[in-house]
Design a binder for these strands. Sequence first.
DNA 1: TCGTATACGATACGATCGTATACAGGGGCA
DNA 2: TGCCCCTGTATACGATCGTATCGTATACGA
Lengths: 205, 205
Amino acid sequence: MPQSATKTAATTQLNRRQRLILAGRHLFAAKGYSAAGVREIAAEAGVSIGLIRTHFGSKAGLREEIDRQVIAQIEDLCSRASEHLGTEALDLLVEDAVEWVERERDALLYVRAALMEKTPGSQALLRQLLEIMRRFVALNRERDLLQDDVDEEWAATFLVIDFLGPAVLEPFSEEEFGMSMYHREMVKRRSAFMNRVVTRGFMKS
Amino acid sequence: MPQSATKTAATTQLNRRQRLILAGRHLFAAKGYSAAGVREIAAEAGVSIGLIRTHFGSKAGLREEIDRQVIAQIEDLCSRASEHLGTEALDLLVEDAVEWVERERDALLYVRAALMEKTPGSQALLRQLLEIMRRFVALNRERDLLQDDVDEEWAATFLVIDFLGPAVLEPFSEEEFGMSMYHREMVKRRSAFMNRVVTRGFMKS
DNA sequence: TCGTATACGATACGATCGTATACAGGGGCA
DNA sequence: TGCCCCTGTATACGATCGTATCGTATACGA
């Protein structure tokens, strides 16, 4: 009983804090930082309001912690993406990203919401994404997979935009396209189209 | 005196209302709908708070009116884009859009902010953008400017994403790229890159 | 010229915001 | 056992939110 109580207590402590983070991430992503209230977050996490102050100092502190965790996730994605080489690197990066998005949809939607507000955290998030794409472009140049005279900085920016694009459109996707942007069929079509665009384009010159 | 007084009064009336709309558009775009308060909006417009209720019923009513005006502007852009034909149609559409963005930057940043929140207005805004791009794609197909076997729905979505992309990145642009996304040099480089991408891509297959 | 409708501002109201404070339970250490 | 710190809850506080109300000034039609 004492041991299991200790364990339970520790678990609960971790859970309380982490549940606040998850609830905050979810609500910030869904309604935006200003519109999501601390009482609502605490209620969704199933804890009392005071815990936000205890663990994070303030609502802003909670956001900073969420930023840190999401940035860490993207760093992970980045390091795994760097392992991909060869012709199918883009496919694999897309697959990795898609797998992450499926597993951590709230995290992506949080990135989407975070970018709406310019904070140190959101700036860092964007920089992280740019860094991933710059490395990806550089890697492909080294492997001689880039066409000649490509504006590499814009190529990286282009990739960031088209990574975030579906997230931006996601809340409207059901009504405009009849399914989620991250529905398997949607991802497949999009992946095929983007693959075509980056290698051949879609318009005659 | 009476005539000029009448004129002034009428002008003032129009100004008051329109100034509220412009101030609201600016603040909603800059801080988001929830974070922008009615007192702040009234102060920026140089009128008293009560006028928001008088003219629009509520804060939400003000947003609806802003939505209407912005949608109307985009419709204008749409009808003008439809006039462009021939090989340089994309260039002209881009030029039109760029000119509009330069003239009405707040309107674009408002679109950006509006898309963060799912409302009837934001859904209509997105649909409008999609419609523009669908027509553009269809027009190019009719003119035989599309490559074979292009997924036209995704092509239109792609164009929407890459139209909104710079707006999404704009608040971070100064720090990441050293200048605004809508700086002339930036637009030129971006335009060149996008032109290349849609016709040739940038990666070897 | 007067009556009325509208335009407008000042202020009050209730709700909700984020934060601060007071207090309760339960391990770890003397 | 007694003290203490840590985690946690409940509640209070001041500020600010959006909205409602009231008084006044101004323009227009009879």
